[in-house]
Computed example of a mutant assay.
Amino acid sequence: MAVVDVQNMAGDKVSQIDLSDSIFNIEVKSEVLHEVVKMQLACRRAGTASVKRRSDVKGSTRKLYRQKGTGRARRGDIKSPVMRGGGVVFGPKPKSYAYSVPKKVRRLALKMALSSKFQDKELIVLNSMDFDTPKTKKFLDVMNALKLENVLIVTSGENENLELSSRNVASVKVMRTEGLNVYDVLKYQSLLLLEPSVSGIEGRLSE
């Protein structure tokens, strides 16, 4: 069993917690993490880039001048792609870049991401983080006590005061267990788990 100290908001050790080796302490393979992160980023692409084709450009369809006898190159209408302000031939149109990898691979990659944080000693477990009212200053005091700057905080459920207290801190993100994903785990330097969220993560990833 992987064992981690449980701290309070002052940074003091209050207990220990056993983490499942099959989730938090497995072999990390970079190629699996890369494949899932690449998929996540592809799914986030908007794919809204678009150009106006010949039929989309406003203008007359009248032939600019007669086909023969002028000595000039033949011309169609003013919307021709070779004319200034004409339509674009091979430009982009809205499309989806999303694709999927097998569910087992996604689950394995998330286990590997969590294991990498544990093995690099960048995983912290906190017994609770409750605020009476939303207050960014109080939140920053807790971050300073824990010596954390760039961190992903995982909660077991809705924690409105915590979410509101941290939303103005650019290097911090608060996420619930159901939204936990590989990209965000790897993006932030530290992973802070509130103690109740550990059982939620293990329940979600246990086979």
Results as ranks from 00 to 15, higher is better:
residue 2 A to E: 11
residue 3 V to F: 10
residue 6 V to I: 15
residue 7 Q to D: 05
residue 10 A to Q: 13
residue 13 K to M: 08
residue 16 Q to K: 14
residue 18 D to T: 13
residue 18 D to F: 11
residue 22 S to M: 06
residue 24 F to V: 07
residue 30 S to G: 07
residue 32 V to N: 12
residue 34 H to W: 14
residue 37 V to T: 06
residue 37 V to G: 04
residue 38 K to C: 07
residue 42 A to D: 01
residue 44 R to S: 07
residue 50 S to A: 13
residue 50 S to I: 08
residue 51 V to I: 13
residue 53 R to S: 08
residue 54 R to P: 01
residue 55 S to P: 00
residue 57 V to Q: 03
residue 60 S to A: 09
residue 60 S to Q: 02
residue 66 R to W: 01
residue 68 K to T: 12
residue 70 T to E: 03
residue 74 R to M: 13
residue 75 R to I: 09
residue 75 R to E: 11
residue 77 D to N: 14
residue 81 P to Q: 08
residue 82 V to M: 14
residue 83 M to D: 01
residue 84 R to K: 15
residue 85 G to Y: 10
residue 86 G to D: 01
residue 88 V to D: 04
residue 89 V to M: 08
residue 90 F to E: 11
residue 95 K to G: 04
residue 95 K to Y: 10
residue 97 Y to D: 02
residue 98 A to C: 08
residue 98 A to T: 04
residue 98 A to V: 04
residue 102 P to N: 10
residue 104 K to P: 00
residue 106 R to I: 08
residue 107 R to L: 13
residue 110 L to E: 04
residue 110 L to P: 00
residue 112 M to S: 00
residue 113 A to S: 07
residue 113 A to D: 04
residue 113 A to W: 11
residue 116 S to I: 09
residue 121 K to W: 05
residue 127 N to K: 15
residue 129 M to A: 07
residue 130 D to C: 08
residue 130 D to E: 15
residue 133 T to K: 12
residue 138 K to Q: 15
residue 138 K to G: 15
residue 139 F to M: 08
residue 140 L to W: 09
residue 142 V to K: 00
residue 149 E to L: 03
residue 153 I to A: 02
residue 159 N to C: 06
residue 163 E to T: 13
residue 164 L to E: 09
residue 164 L to Q: 10
residue 166 S to K: 02
residue 169 V to G: 03
residue 171 S to D: 13
residue 178 E to C: 07
residue 180 L to I: 13
residue 186 L to I: 09
residue 188 Y to D: 07
residue 191 L to P: 01
residue 191 L to F: 08
residue 195 E to N: 05
residue 198 V to P: 00
residue 198 V to Y: 00
residue 200 G to E: 04
residue 202 E to C: 03
residue 202 E to N: 00
residue 202 E to R: 02
residue 205 L to N: 05
residue 206 S to V: 15
residue 206 S to G: 13
residue 206 S to N: 14
